[in-house]
Design a protein around this nucleic acid. Sequence first.
DNA 1: GTCGTTATCGATCGACGATCGAGAACGACC
DNA 2: GGTCGTTCTCGATCGTCGATCGATAACGAC
Lengths: 273, 273
Amino acid sequence: MARSTDKKPDGAAAAESLGSPGVEPPVVEPPVVEPPVVEPPVVEPPVVEMPVVEPPWWTKPKPSRRRQPMSRDAIVKAALTIVDEEGIDALTVRRLGEALNTGSATLYWHIGSKNELAEMVYDHVMGELELPEPDPANWQHQIKAMAFDLYRLLLRHKDLVRLSLGHLPTGPNTLRVAEWNVAVLRGAGIPDQVVSYFGDVMSRYLDASVLESTTQTGPPMEMVGEYFRSLPPDRFPNMLALMPTAMVGSDEERFGFGLDLLLRGLADYLANS
Amino acid sequence: MARSTDKKPDGAAAAESLGSPGVEPPVVEPPVVEPPVVEPPVVEPPVVEMPVVEPPWWTKPKPSRRRQPMSRDAIVKAALTIVDEEGIDALTVRRLGEALNTGSATLYWHIGSKNELAEMVYDHVMGELELPEPDPANWQHQIKAMAFDLYRLLLRHKDLVRLSLGHLPTGPNTLRVAEWNVAVLRGAGIPDQVVSYFGDVMSRYLDASVLESTTQTGPPMEMVGEYFRSLPPDRFPNMLALMPTAMVGSDEERFGFGLDLLLRGLADYLANS
DNA sequence: GTCGTTATCGATCGACGATCGAGAACGACC
DNA sequence: GGTCGTTCTCGATCGTCGATCGATAACGAC
């Protein structure tokens, strides 16, 4: 449905307008002959054809048997560069077109929608995650290490995580990560239903943690601190008592603490059912 | 800074334009006398003055000693109604103005920015949460019950949670909930630093869980299921094996599972470290 | 050559958050 | 009771966003 109503160039109409030159307006100004844009030849690595695994609703780039113009991959990479350097809010279709020396209309031939692009960018980043061979005997250590790697990876790409919050993992690289996790946990003998639940919980916690570490809307930190200190002590005694601990610990430490709780909880759950 | 550059009606200029009638354009059309809009008298409950606790950067409604026009409270309530009935995306300043029989410019006199409004709406909802007297002896039970209540409360208001994801709790009602939690945990003898970390983790997990239960972007569920079943078995054996368990369990059960893990983990942490 | 497909691109749409300036409504004060 | 400054309303408008349209160029197949 998504692309079924494609823009079909009306060949007949085009031919007609060409065949009736009398209608053409007098030459107001000669068409500005753009100097051929000397594109730095983006040296694409030789395309190794390998069975593509990706959601069927992602717009296919119409099997390109033509020149090498505006590959979907180049779009995704350019988008990721913008996100990394200027943040997610700077990623607009216009800005992306600018980075690729084209306009927004051109991009929409390739990407379907901005949400779709966002999922592709997210999945592209997931491809950067290195995964060791699953070793179920060390499942706790492996899961923990993977979670930290993923946490840092997402942080490295600024607020990219905002792209994917309520989404199921459907991209090929995201699926690869999911498969690895499930392999480790199932290999460790954890019941399928528990694996399913636990994976759910972990991905939520991870996304939310990254989000909290990156999002920085709201008033500046010092203003918040001052406000907190000004709270009436009779109504917020415990919050005030907790203030000194509020600034202690890096984001990563706090993330690690929660991760530790989840794994301890899982171990306890498995032991005591 | 936020409101320091307020629109200051330039009294001098106003007086000048009044004092030089010659400049007035000829009567082009008589000012359309709007029939007095018979506002259904929004019966506000008698305002009980009580010490206000709220962030200093929230725009104050300029101590209103005038008629009762467009209170900030009425705006927040109308906004919440829109969110509840039509979702967060329907909450635009124009739509809100429509609901209040006014325009967007009027609203901006009261609210400063849409983000500010969003925080107020979120905090308003937090005011709906009922909290029992803290009973530290039953801290695990109390925290669990509170988390479930809050989870259901946020779900009841659709995708409202998207308003507050990366934010610190700064509204008065949100602070009240935070104070309650800290009171319970500290009362149970849990060290301050642990309380601080745990509160962090809990709020992340809660927000992320609500978010996942509400957000429904992406392709329709059945399409995703079909896609998952079509994955190549040699590359995704474990994901495929897990499929039967993927649809089992309500959102609330899954939320409860993670909540249980966190509490078990905390208990284990306190006991063994 | 011609023809249909694939792709590019300027112009444009409707909606968004936010701002401006004119002026109306109101309390305070003389 | 007039006048004055403050408080609030409101239509008009700005710049930007995601997305679409129609014209047209580039290309492969026949």
